[in-house]
Design a protein around this nucleic acid. Structure first.
Lengths: 140, 140
DNA sequence: TCTTGCACCTCTAGTCACTAGAGGATGTAG
DNA sequence: CTACATCCTCTAGTGACTAGAGGTGCAAGA
């Protein structure tokens, strides 16, 4: 019976206040009931949902993927094959992203090590950027 | 003396045609001379500059960082300390990003492994998302 | 009771780095 | 000369928010 304000919901879920309103506006969260003075009044289930969304966002899932995941969660008798597929796809993406960031890290290290803190014309940072500019290496 | 069209510049630099125009519009690339019929005519130096930008973008540098890097490149008698600082900051970011992606990968693996391809109410993917939802772990 | 002051409301516009599309002009090969 | 690719400018859209203007609601202290 205690009314949960948007500020409280934000604090408990870790989602910012304007973001909660944004999620409502795009239909990721059902519009909550309102107080006499037109203020949103959330229920505990909304907090869990917001926390779910936040966690999924932190894991890098896109809003549309989260929408699917939430639909699945709303109907627990469905097969979880799609949830599994979404997570697997994300795993592949993440593995790819890690690989390319490792390559990038190596490249940045070469730059930074090579920089003797002299003038720009001897600078490895600029040089590496310019030199590799000609190459056609694959993008993410 | 041979005129380089925007299409040719795009092909040689690996930057797409509309993106070349976009870079010109934000002042990252000087406006090139024009043909009688108002078509852009680039010089070889523009191609190098575009390739430099492309490479830096692939390495995840932001446009404003690239703008600084380009200013530095334009005046090679400056100290390269700022180029070095930019690259170092980026390296720290990348290392952090790799660390959090590794954690994410582990979490996704738990999800996917645990999924017995049954119904949603036994699904690890949904469960992990919902359970960790309550926790307050640091973001990106 | 009044008033201070924070939290809430809606709405629009801005962010970043492009990308897409409309509607029209130019340049080149056959 | 006629296709047709390529070019031009312009506006608007993307994702996932974030910021700000201008106003209302509400709880606590004087």
């Amino acid at each position: 019976m205690k009314k949960i304000t948007i500020g409280e919901a934000a604090r408990q879920s870790g989602v910012k206040v304007p973001t909660v309103r944004y999620y409502e506006s795009i239909g990721l969260l059902a519009a909550p009931s309102r107080s006499e003075g037109n203020q949103r009044s959330f229920e505990p289930a909304d907090i869990s949902r917001l926390a779910f969304i936040r966690h999924a966002r932190e894991l890098g899932f896109e809003i549309e993927a989260i929408r699917t995941l939430l639909t699945l969660q709303d109907d627990p008798h469905q097969s979880c094959a799609s949830a599994d597929a979404i997570a697997k796809a994300r795993l592949v993406e993440v593995e790819q992203r890690i690989r390319s960031l490792m390559a990038l890290k190596a490249e940045l290290e070469t730059m930074v090590e090579g920089c003797g803190h002299g003038r720009v014309d001897q600078c490895r940072v600029i040089e590496v950027l310019a030199d590799h500019g000609q190459c056609t290496h694959s993008h993410h």
